[in-house]
Nucleic acid binder design. Structure first.
Lengths: 139, 139
DNA sequence: ACAACGAGTTGTACTCTACAACCATCTGGC
DNA sequence: GCCAGATGGTTGTAGAGTACAACTCGTTGT
């Protein structure tokens, strides 16, 4: 097997490995905001004018799943569904101030835990790792 | 915020982003072998003498969850639980020939899909990305 | 104006998961 | 040797996340 396909296989395996552990770690570290909810909320925060259907497509989830997750987030006051005057079928999503606070706390914890694992990484490696991940995800 | 903590935050966000999509993508691409089952089987293949408790610890899962997943894998003939003569409490796990075939097929699909996303990456970047992921996961 | 489409919600069922209770086996101190 | 506590695993039960199907309501195109 070529060096290249070995690298691809390693990337595949290690990413899956991470994904598999992330759920459990996240459930333990911030109970009360599931990984799904956290991710959806983060996405809405970062992307203006997101609608439920966009989330479903992006995260490969059924629209019913997204609908219920958003309903829960809205119930808890972390997110608003704003009627779009131009299109009465859909509603545009927006994180509330309360939601933003929750996200800040969760993010701080998550980033803190991650920073611990990365303490002995040189700055240059961190920057490159970050850019690789962005590049991979945006493909 | 420093460049360094920006990088850490990006890494955190992008890894979670990946994890969140992995489940759905995997469920669609290889139905019949869940992401959990696939990961456990891969782990057993790569690590001799793995026991159920090791998997539970490694993947941050309850031992009951692992027990059921393994029971299913064993039922389907993909994995064996071999009695350990030295310790009658535990059983050592081993992938069967059938299990190996399943893994090969699943891996080939997964790696193929991933290779498509990575076609325009230079070899050096792939190698570095792979090594970063290994380094991160082994921490 | 009506049919097709798009966005979202709700009913239902299944899987993954945790927690608790349990059984069997091993280990260390006495 | 023997018992208490630890370790490995299974089973009962319940809850969260998810998909699929059927539905409503609004929009678009012919």
């Amino acid at each position: 097997m070529s060096k290249r396909s070995q690298a691809v296989e390693t990337i595949q395996r290690e990413l899956i490995e991470f994904a598999r552990r992330a759920r459990g770690v996240s459930a333990r570290s911030h109970p009360g905001l599931s990984l799904v909810a956290y991710t959806l909320l983060t996405h809405v925060e970062r992307h203006e004018q997101t609608r439920a259907a966009d989330l479903a497509e992006h995260y490969v989830l059924d629209k019913s799943t997204v609908s219920r997750q958003l309903a829960e987030l809205a119930d808890r006051g972390l997110l608003e569904r704003v009627a779009d005057p131009r299109n009465h079928r859909s509603r545009v999503l927006r994180v509330t101030a309360k939601g933003r606070r929750h996200l800040d706390v969760a993010r701080e914890q998550a980033v803190g835990a991650m920073a611990d694992r990365l303490t002995d990484w040189p700055d240059a490696d961190l920057a490159r790792f970050a850019s690789y991940l962005e590049r991979y995800n945006s493909a």
